[in-house]
Computed example of a mutant assay.
Amino acid sequence: MKIKILIFTSLLCLACSKKAEPRRPIMVKPSTTVLKETINQSIRLNKIEEEKILSVIRKDSTNTYKVSPNGFWYTYINKIEENLPTPKAGNTVTLSYNITDLQDTVIYSKKELGLKQYKVDKEDFISALQTGIKLMKIGETITFVIPSYNAFGLSGDGNKIGINQSIKSTVTLININN
């Protein structure tokens, strides 16, 4: 009996002493065709979205829109001709704004959003408005037409704004504080 236990223990020790080899991670390289197809699909979706926006702008014969190099369109509702300062990075601005869809259906009203205190380029805000606010003088009102990639993108806002939804926002700059 003692010999059987000794043999069993010896075999167990030999089996356990075998050097364990680490498992290698499985590396799957992304297919370049999948990546190219994803890029092409994004380009197609952006073109469709841009056509919708341009259609809305063409139908608005009362306003003249400018295109920003940052990928949004804007028109002045109230333009101040005086030589007044515009917001700079680090300024805190007070503004009122709303958000509508491209057909001017209100998503968030100015009343619902209230006055916004925004520290220019130091806080997260709608991407296009972060840039657009720096065009404004105190007292000016601008309507921005914003494609989804410059607004809430692929995720929407998790509430009323859907995925890949273009929006319009009319913003009034009330004050600039240093």
Rank of each mutant, 00 (worst) to 15 (best):
D124E: 07
K122T: 01
N98D: 15
N91F: 07
Y74E: 06
N78M: 12
K79M: 02
T92N: 07
Y118V: 03
D101G: 06
K116I: 12
Q117R: 12
E82T: 13
K122V: 05
K110C: 08
G114F: 05
E123I: 00
A89Y: 05
T75F: 02
D124G: 11
K111M: 09
E123K: 00
G90S: 14
Y97I: 14
V93H: 04
Q103R: 12
E82A: 15
G114N: 13
S96N: 14
Y108R: 07
Y74D: 05
S96Q: 14
K119S: 13
V67S: 14
S96T: 15
T86Q: 15
W73G: 04
N91M: 05
N70D: 15
V120R: 05
V106T: 13
P87M: 04
K116A: 12
I80G: 09
T105W: 07
F125Y: 15
Y65F: 14
V120I: 15
A89I: 12
K119I: 11
K110D: 08
L102C: 07
L95I: 08
K111H: 08
S96L: 11
I107C: 03
G114V: 02
K116G: 04
E112V: 05
V106S: 03
K88C: 09
S96H: 13
T100K: 08
I99L: 06
S96F: 09
L95P: 03
